[in-house]
Amino acid sequence: MADAIELVNVQKQYKVNNHLTHALKDVNLTIPKGQFIGILGENGSGKTTLARLFNGLILPTKGNVYVDGMDTFDKRFIKKIRSRVGMIFQNPENQIISSIVEEELAFGPQNLNLPIEEIDKRVDKALNIMGLTALRFHATNLLSGGQKQRLAIASILTMKPQYLILDEPTSMLDQSGRYELINYLKKLNKQHNITIVLITHNIKDILSADRLIVLKKGAVVLDSTPWKIFSSPENLEISGLNPPDMVKLVNGLNKRGYKLKDEILTTEQMVEFICRQLN
């Protein structure tokens, strides 16, 4: 039971204009600790609904969600669940509550009623991890988009989460901000052993993920590694995804008789592969 987020036969229905719509149909998922997971899906495929089920912001119509064995239906656990499962939203502006960076970070632990010395320690650490120490006393409305999104993550880190759910965090950032944020997420996953669940539109964000989940019309249609999903034509057909350019290149080369055995998804991996061949 423990040490994972588990969705058991989860269904979620919404009533829109007296008309029932199924946002999620019978989803069974296990998110074990330590993984970097990407969730892909078109608009209206149920990604956001799925994200909000993870920390009990919404409750399933049928089925149960367990966080480390705690049922999200049980109101006694709700603070524990929410401090373990941190949530980052799309718009960085609308999740920053305080005017000063330092106070923003203290908001979560304050709600957990922690003593001030402990809050101070956690704020120091989170600022350090997210590279915001220099901005500690800065006004939050003067930060850039990327900095705001990093601040949002830092202020979740002060609650010492085990899981971090990010709902399209890069969609309002520019290229460099997006690249930087993904690198920070990788660092959190590798160095601090925080499970990352990254929901996104952009396949570039999740090429190095351990596991990819593809949602379509409220159901999980694929659950595999990025390479397996992007390199097999059947999987691409099922998911309706467009493979990254590098995968197209590798597939083309393989068709022409060059046998590339490696799983190459990004330019960096390709460069590494070629260098190895030359030696």
Binding site: R82, G86, N94, G108, S155
Partner: peptide, 26 residues
Amino acid sequence: QRAADIAIAMESRCYTGEINHNRIKG
């Protein structure tokens, strides 16, 4: 719309509207 977003963000950071005694003690 923004207010609804903020409410969700605050809720997911354990805000429940309780009195915070530590803040006053500080």
